[in-house]
């Protein structure tokens, strides 16, 4: 049974989540991938205001395909997360509480998640047309020149994801593979 949660995330929501939980996310999330992360962290280091409030924020690692006429957004599945690892700890220090992507994170990110109380979700990579159905509104709010890499504000309804890493050190990738590995 999936847990229904709302973004931005409260500390209580994050505390309640455990590796392996299926969730349905509703509310407001932001898109960002490689180049957007670089710009966001450059802005933070320069003391500039960010294009959105990081408090409790959830960033979805996605570069959607363009919307056809009549569509809210094109296909919109997750991209591989480790490329954001160099930037994520600083964003968590400044308030980021949720990340949605796919694939394994490095220990420095997992440590920051424990330190600041954040959670890492995976969406199903390549289920991009299916996921797009849960995105109800989308608008570019920053870095329009980056095209697919621009930062978008998304309104989502029952966006399906699974908790990979919780704030307690739980790791679904480790647990799942250990269960099915054969020597």
């Amino acid at each position: 049974m999936a847990k229904k949660i709302t973004a931005p995330l409260t500390p209580e929501t994050v505390k309640d989540l455990r590796a392996g939980d299926s969730v349905l996310i509703s509310g407001t999330i932001y898109t960002g991938r490689d180049l957007a992360h670089k710009r966001l962290t450059d802005s933070l280091k320069a003391g500039e205001k960010l294009p959105f409030d990081l408090a409790g924020a959830v960033i979805y690692y996605v570069g959607p395909s363009p919307a056809k006429p009549g569509q809210v957004i094109g296909s919109a599945g997750p991209t591989t997360s480790y490329r954001m690892d160099a930037y994520s700890p600083l964003l968590m220090e400044k308030g980021l509480r949720g990340m949605i992507g796919k694939g394994n994170r490095t220990p420095v990110v997992l440590d920051a998640m424990k330190k600041y109380g954040a959670v890492y979700f995976a969406a199903v990579g390549g289920a991009a047309a299916l996921i797009a159905k849960t995105i109800k509104k989308a608008k570019v709010i920053a870095y329009d020149d980056l095209g697919p890499e621009a930062v978008r504000e998304l309104e989502v309804e029952d966006f399906p994801a699974i908790v990979i890493n919780d704030m307690y050190g739980g790791d679904l990738y480790e647990q799942g593979v250990a269960q099915y590995k054969k020597d």
Binding site: G63, P64, S65, G74, S75, G126, A128, A129
Partner: peptide
């Protein structure tokens, strides 16, 4: 996902 992509002629994956 494959069915939706086929029916709506939208990309299977955003990449």
């Amino acid at each position: 996902n494959e069915q939706i992509a086929r029916k709506e002629m939208m990309p299977i994956c955003q990449d």
